[in-house]
Write a protein that binds this DNA or RNA. Structure first.
Length: 329
DNA sequence: AAGTGTTTCAACCGCCCGTCC
DNA sequence: CGGACGGGCGGTTGAAACACT
């Protein structure tokens, strides 16, 4: 409503004395925000902005913190496991980005939303169908997701082989998760060089433990890419092992098995019907792919309008949509 | 090397909801 | 009970980065 907007705008302006900054954040602003939160924690964002000496709206501060400065953020490519989960959860909940993000530790709703809009919708466009159409949902469920699982399995097998061979391979971005629950919710680490750039943790009084070298900071877009070390140099939340990927995913989709942590426990989910189409059941049982059985379908088995499957796969490959993200090198 | 088109993503907008007084 | 306020969410925008010619 306009009224609501006017109210919002006026209250914000009152709070900030009508002298609001907009646009890209500067390093100085980031520091103010990070320091303030490190010292006082999060609170009411409007008063936080004022107390921290930021000429920003509370909303702006909140957004900057949640989407960019939070130390437990994962950055870099969306892994196949994460893609799989996003596809699955989106099929259940639609554009409930924040809800989906709750199940992807370290990922923000904004990031997932962007991923969906730029990658998934791109492929729907290539298929000349709407991303919300049954046609595209079928493509995702019966072609895309099974292929993702295969890729995950293949990557896991390859990694296992290399480990058995004693090869000194860079670790995949998946790390071993906790023993209880699906995965542990990411701990909020103290600010140090492994999660914040040197400038930040120095100013915040954190220890620089010789972790990941801090990336260069650029001041203008305040870090749009500046804080990013592309592969998620931030504190990594605990994740299931690569080898457990499919099994973990299966478990993750089984709301009843979830306990504690950032587990998939959700009454809505429990009430939700399994998103299976055309009488095909996407069973969550054993098979050659541990934990997952996808129906052995050919394109003709379900109604996908006329599109070129080969070109679909080609576009996927070109997009490197399948490649598991390697950890920082 | 320069120009142009495309993609990505941080930031903002508009609306809504819950809480407080 | 109703208005004010704070905060959360989904959608949109625009600039930077990147790719291509």
């Amino acid at each position: 409503m306009d009224m609501a907007h006017e109210r919002d705008a006026s209250s914000e302006e009152e709070v900030m004395g009508g002298d609001l900054r907009r646009g890209p954040w500067t390093v100085e602003e980031d520091l103010l925000l990070v320091n303030y939160i490190a010292a006082h924690g999060e609170g009411r964002w409007n008063s936080l902005a004022r107390s921290a000496g930021l000429k920003r709206t509370g909303k702006s501060c909140r957004l900057r913190w949640l989407n960019y400065l939070r130390p437990d953020l994962r950055r870099g490519n969306i892994t196949p496991q994460e893609q799989l989960l996003i596809l699955e959860l989106h099929s259940r909940w639609g554009n409930r980005w924040s809800k989906i993000a709750q199940h992807l530790p370290g990922r923000t709703d904004n990031e997932i939303k962007n991923y969906w809009r730029t990658r998934v919708q791109k492929h729907a466009k290539q298929l000349k169908c709407d991303v919300n159409s049954q046609q595209f949902k079928d493509v995702m469920r019966y072609l895309w997701m099974p292929r993702l699982v295969e890729r995950i399995q293949a990557a896991a097998a390859g990694q296992q082989q290399q480990q058995e061979g004693g090869a000194d391979t860079p670790p995949l971005s998946w790390q071993h998760g906790g023993s209880d629950g699906l995965y542990e919710s990411p701990e909020l680490p103290a600010p140090d060089a492994s999660c914040w750039p040197a400038e930040y943790c120095a100013a915040a009084g954190g220890a620089q433990s010789g972790g990941t070298p801090a990336p260069e900071l650029s001041s203008t877009t305040a870090g749009s890419s500046s804080l990013s070390t592309d592969s998620g140099a931030g504190a990594q939340p605990s994740w299931p092992t690569q080898a457990d990927g499919a099994e973990w995913f299966t478990t993750a989709c089984d709301a009843s098995s979830a306990t504690g942590g950032v587990a998939m426990r959700d009454t809505e989910l429990e009430l939700a019907q399994p998103p299976c189409q055309g009488g095909q059941t996407w069973t969550m049982s054993e098979s050659s792919l541990p934990g997952l059985t996808f129906p052995d379908l050919a394109v003709a088995d379900f109604e996908i309008g006329g599109f070129d499957v080969d070109s679909f796969w080609t576009s996927m490959e070109d997009d490197q949509l399948w490649c598991p993200t390697q950890a920082a090198v």
